[in-house]
Amino acid sequence: MRNGEPIIEVEGLVTRFGDNVIHENLDLTVKRGEVIGIVGGSGTGKSVLLRTILGLKKPDAGRIRVFGLDLAEMPEQERRVHERRWGVLFQDGALFSSLTVAQNIQVPYREHLQLSQALMDELAAVKIAMVGLKPEAAGLYPSELSGGMRKRAGLARALALDPEILFLDEPTAGLDPIGAAAFDELIEDLKETLGLTVFMVTHDLDTLYATCDRIAVLAEKRVILIGTIDDMLLSRHAWVHEYFHGPRARAAFAGK
């Protein structure tokens, strides 16, 4: 597959919790090699969309194709194989608390591959360096890490199998501005070197400006607008206008 081809296609997605409809006929296409940012007000179902694409929640209607394949239709065994082709960073890293950082990174190696311990140790060390953690972090347990370090360690685990798609749920929430900026650079860097497609749910305007190729706005139970930052700035939709022209947006934009 080449860059620019659709890698995630969502068609006519409907999700609800009881009577509460979250998405109604939601369509979204993500192209290979791009960084797409999902924005929307609280409760518009950004995280639900992410979880639905990942197969953690069943859609009530509609079709989701990832890598051109309908994963929901696949037998369990086969789906597992494809799930290894993406990496997910959950909000607080979701590291396994009983394992050290290095062991966390090695979980997918142990589970899916047959590698020597020496090679696994080396790869864990490379991933740890890659996400900008100090080598000493390898032997620490998640409870001994700060929030920013946990996110980086979570990212290292998400990158363990060199995924094609990286899903990020609020990657910069709770980080200090320096840490958040470093995280933006890291994502940009990884996209360049590894050719990743990045699907990012975020509220951080700086991140949107710094890293995203396209932005999709969730509102009124669907994607109302998708395009570049410039498209967002031109939009006349009230919420989009307020979001991208508010005081914080102006400040973030002025810095660019």
Partner: peptide
């Protein structure tokens, strides 16, 4: 990218 980080001591 990997050289830049130096080949880290394995854990």
């Amino acid at each position: 990218k990997i050289d830049a980080g130096g080949i880290p001591e394995p854990v």
